[in-house]
Amino acid sequence: MFKIMIVEDDYKIREIMIENIKKWNFDAIAVEDFNEVFHTFVKYEPDLVLMDINLPCFDGFYWCNKIREVSRVPIVFISSRNTNMDIIMAINMGADDFIQKPFSLDVLIAKLTAILRRTYSYSNIESNVLEYNGAILNLKDCNLMYNEEKIDLTKNEFKILYTLIKNNREVVSRDKIMKALWEDESFVDDNTLTVNINRLRKKLSDMGLTDFIQTKKGQGYIIQ
């Protein structure tokens, strides 16, 4: 089932859209907290985003740009703003279509269906991120984002953090982490792992993620 995320400030409009989208056997949610648009996107992992331009806090252009940093998921703007400049900005930001308000629900559904069919018939587009407690790991560019701050990770730091986040409710042994690092045939001994863990912890602490990686004596590591 395709998942649609709606970023629309008008409560009545978004409820009508959700009701009609679900009639076509799509799943749909609407963003409630407009400070958390990006985090909602990461957690929900939608197949398509419906985005208004005029929003509280930051406008739709801002959130479109944030999403495009990590994903090529289709984004369709819906707005009463219909100047050529608005449409050009939307397309330049990476939007796939622009629907002017007021719009026909039949036209909306037809456009969504066409974009989903076109997109997912030819490629498997996914969000290239992992998220845990507000920390967002970019799988494509090997960086970590937290509270609007971004840090670059070395290859080993990225693999360590990826392994821990993928197993976020489990204690991960040092052996399992070292095996993950060995996948590219580079030799990593026990001391090298300790150095990488300590360096990663320092980077995390500097961006506000103090004690993000916890040591379980005699067992391994777990993220908090």
Rank of each mutant, 00 (worst) to 15 (best):
V7S: 06
N84M: 11
V107F: 14
N54L: 14
N138P: 02
S79M: 06
D47V: 03
V31G: 06
E183C: 09
R72H: 14
R81K: 13
N35W: 09
D189I: 08
T215V: 11
I177D: 05
K111Y: 03
T154S: 15
K159W: 12
L50S: 05
L112M: 01
L139Q: 08
N191A: 13
G220I: 05
N124P: 00
V129W: 08
D52P: 01
S123H: 10
D141E: 15
D190K: 15
W24G: 00
V37Y: 03
V7G: 05
N147A: 13
L108S: 02
C64W: 03
V7D: 08
T210H: 15
K22A: 01
L105M: 12
D206V: 06
E126Q: 11
E170F: 03
Y132V: 01
L181G: 05
L144Y: 06
I67Q: 09
K111S: 02
L209S: 05
M178Q: 03
Y122P: 00
T210K: 15
N168I: 02
F212I: 04
N133D: 13
Y62W: 01
F38P: 01
M51Y: 05
E131K: 04
Y11A: 10
D206E: 15
D97K: 08
K66E: 15
T215I: 11
N196R: 08
E131S: 14
N147I: 10
N124E: 13
N20Y: 10
R117T: 09
V129E: 09
I67N: 07
M17F: 08
Q100A: 07
P46C: 10
N138W: 04
W63Q: 07
P56E: 06
F38C: 04
E157F: 06
I6Y: 03
L204D: 08
T163L: 08
I21H: 04
I197S: 07
V172W: 03
V73A: 09
E32M: 12
E131D: 13
I177N: 05
T119P: 04
T83A: 00
F103E: 07
I78N: 02
D86R: 01
R72D: 15
I125M: 07
G134K: 02
T215C: 05
N25G: 00
N168E: 09
K101Q: 14
W24N: 14
G94Y: 03
V42W: 00
N54H: 02
P46T: 09
I67C: 09
S205H: 13
S123Y: 10
R117P: 00
D189A: 10
E19D: 15
I223K: 05
K140F: 03
A30Q: 02
D47F: 03
F98K: 04
K202L: 15
A180S: 15
I151Q: 07
Y44C: 06
E126M: 10
D9V: 00
L50Q: 02
D59Y: 00
L161G: 07
L200M: 08
Q100Y: 00
V195M: 07
A110K: 14
D86Q: 02
T215E: 10
E170C: 01
N143H: 11
I160G: 04
D184N: 11
D211N: 13
R68H: 05
V129R: 10
N167R: 04
L144Q: 05
